[in-house]
Structure formats: C-alpha cells, structure tokens
Design a protein around this nucleic acid. Sequence first.
RNA 1: GCCCAGGUAGUGUAGUGGCCUAUCAUGAUUGCCUGUCACGCAAUCGACUCGGAUUCGAAUUCCGACCUGGGCGCCA
Length: 430
Amino acid sequence: MRVPIQSVTPDCGQAEIAGWVHEVRDLGGLAFMLIRDRTGIIQVTIPKKKVSEQVLAALKAVSRESVVRVSGPIKAMDKAPGGRELVPEKIEIISLAETPLPLDVSEKVQAELDTRLDARFLDVRRPRVAAVFEIRSAATFAIHQYFHDAGFTSITTPKIVAAATEGGTELFPIAYFDKEAFLNQSPQLYKQMMMAAGCEKVVEVGPIFRAEEHATTKHLNEATSIDIEVSFADHLEVMRILEDLIIKTYEYVDKTCSVQIANIGVEDFAVPKGPFPRLPYAEAIEIAAKKIEDPIKYGDDVSPAAERAIGAEMGGHYFIVDWPSEIRPYYAMQYENDPSICKAFDMMHPRMELSSGAQREHRYDILVNQIKKKGLNPESFEFYLKPFRYGMPPHAGWGLGADRLVMTMLGLGNVREAVLFPRDMHRLVP
RNA sequence: GCCCAGGUAGUGUAGUGGCCUAUCAUGAUUGCCUGUCACGCAAUCGACUCGGAUUCGAAUUCCGACCUGGGCGCCA
C-alpha cells in the first residue's frame, strides 16, 4: 500500500512509496536515491553489501526522473534529509525516463521560460513551480467559496459565439459547420442577460479569447476571467464585493499555503488592506502627467508607463473611478449630472490592471442611443438588446483576470508562469 | 504592427576577424569511492539557427529568412 512521502516517519516501521527519482548519489559501497512525490522527498539508502540483487540491478538501471516504487523498513537517521531513510527490500522501475532530460528538474541549472514551457510536464515537477499552481487552485477555491456563501449562482456561458458583440478587441474566427463564428472575448453580454433571467447574482470563472497581437509579459490570447453581475446593485456595491473578494482570497492563501509561498520564495506576501482607495480618473491622469515624460491628458487611456507611475504613488491595490464615457464601452452607465463621465471603474495592482467593471445601462432607449453614439449598429446587437425590452433590473458587475491575480499575488515576472499551458501569439503547443 | 537585444552541446553560458581542434558549469556514458545531501575523483561524449555575401581566413562583419526575450502600440 503506497503512502505519501510526507507521511513517512520512523514510526512507520515498514513503508512502500512511489514517485520520481530526484537524484542518485553513488558513493561506491553505499548509494543514495532521492525519491520525490508531490508531498515531499525521501532518501532511499542502499548499502550495497546488504541489499538484494534485485535492488542492485534497479539502482544500476534507473535514470533520473524515472518513476519507481520502493518498499522497505524506515529508520530514524539524523544524517538523512527529513531525519529518516528507507532501506529498500525492493525497487520496481515502473517507467524508465529517457536521458538526457529536456531540462534539469533538480534546478542546478536554470532553464529559460520558453524551454520550461516546451517541457511543462517536467517543469511542474519542480516543487517551486508546482507551488504556483497549488496556490492558484487554493485561490480559485476561495473565490468559489466566497460567491457560493454570498448566494451567487455559478454559471457557464458559450465560448462559441455568432458575432463580434462588443467591438474593440480582435476575435478569433472559427469554422462552425457552414456558419461564421468566433471565440468569445468576454461573458459580458451573457451575464447581463442572466440579470433579465432573474438570477440576480451570477458568477462565471472561465476562459476568454482575444486575438490581439501583443507580445508582453502580462497579455495572453487565452485567459481565465472571473466575472460577476449583480442585480439591483450599483458600481459602488460591486466594487465593495471586489475588494472584499481580493482580501478574502489573499487571507485564504496566506492561511493555507504557507509552505507553497515559502517554496516560491515570496518574502513579502501581505494580505492587502481595505478599503482600496477610490481615485477619480481625472486625478489619476494628473498624477501620471506629473511623473512621466510622455504627455498624457484627460481622455487618454492609461498607458503602461502611466499605470506604473500611478501604481508607485498608490503603493497598493486601488480603484480608478469616474472614467470619461468616451473611452468606456457603450453599456457603462453615465452619471445623470455629468454624462461625460460614467460609473465605470478599473481595479489596479501597482503593477497592472486586474479588473474592470461598471454599473450597466439597463434602460433600453438610452442603451440603444449609446450604442449608436459609439458608431455601432443596434441591429447587430438584437440578441443582446432583446432582454432589455422585457423587464431588465438595474445591475452592475466586473471581470477580474485570474492569471494576473495569481501573477501579482506571487510577484511572478511573467503571466505565463501563472498559467499551465499559456497561449500567446507564438505558442500553440503544448 | 513598430523599436531594441539576442539565437553557441540536453540545459544554462564564455567567446566581437586568425590564439577555436570553441570556455565554464550542469548533464549523459564508463570506472573508482560506505553517510552523501549541489557528494567527490578520473576518462569519454556532446554545440556555433538556416541561406547568401565580404575576406587569404567568419561563431565573430554584412544582407535576408526563421525563432526567442524585453519595451511600445493595440487591448470588451
């Protein structure tokens, strides 16, 4: 009966373990094999004169990163890592690894990200890499739990859609029988339809696709988005939900993943403090204009340099609110007293944008008007507009980039490190 | 799409016209070694992205292609 390596102690007496051969050190009459599974590493000590022919043959035949099953007595040993070692009665080579390896799992020699992603299955064998995805899993769990507890309905919406519904970003066209179709850039329109469906609070965690030809450390062509929409809520209420979610997620990771955080080498892991400052767009532009060389003025989008300048000033998570209506999508609700700005917001980490959202325009006539003002044709939005004619409550929501959340939480240099099999302009395999 | 920097053994690197039969580390193969823990020692193996040009001579210079990294633009 195989046991996890972490649970092997001198009290076990006898144990059977299975895992990957991390390293072999042959000292002559004595050899050590380090065996690794996802829970830890144990030393298998082989005094050559005292073990069976079968064990000696396996020691000679085995290569690094092969999968083996080893059984034998456990002994307390101060000199061994973890204070215990296994003396094998039997070593079974389950799967022999080819040599040489495409990258060094034991990390004596670092590999470049591109090399690592080409052999991701080997890369993730490294505890510090596995830790990223264990933390991502914990964060995802905390997020689902948060919304479940708050009474949200978790939904899934189509990723194959008929039309470019929002304009702006490039879409991936796909062959859909004899029709033209696209991969969806956002669940935006569908989650709004669910407000008309009376669901009141919905959340979707799923993939979004963008065909933008950007090659940066924070963009992907397939990303994971955490999207919510809430009926009878305004933008202020969903901002409170967002900052609460971020804090609760950090708290959960802090509480349950200390081993992984240490593994990755994050020294300054800190749960962000709420409430996050609400910085009006106009003030954000002023800060940026003072600090960066490129001229930036009211009405411009916030450039990466401006993002960094404002982020340095703010020092932690913050919101940018009250955006000019002209640079936000048609579905953002404008202020009654000043239609030049709207109830839209971005939630920022000092390094980059994590989320954007808004109170949506739910009044049919105004919405149609705003679509027209953006130079779009309301007729091509019929499937989206129809629900607005049959009882649409006021609502607000946001989308949060899960990959960037993990990236900024762990201080990773490249968003690809937070994604198992990232998709970018150049990478479609594995 | 634009700008910049790159492409050398499986991996990570040194090498900017002849000293390159290409450096170092790690690795692989073989041998020695009974307490290693980045074990040690010895031997062996293994690479200049591709095509063209300049030159007596090119890993090194030039041109083109392909690929990679970083920045910008773009980014509901």
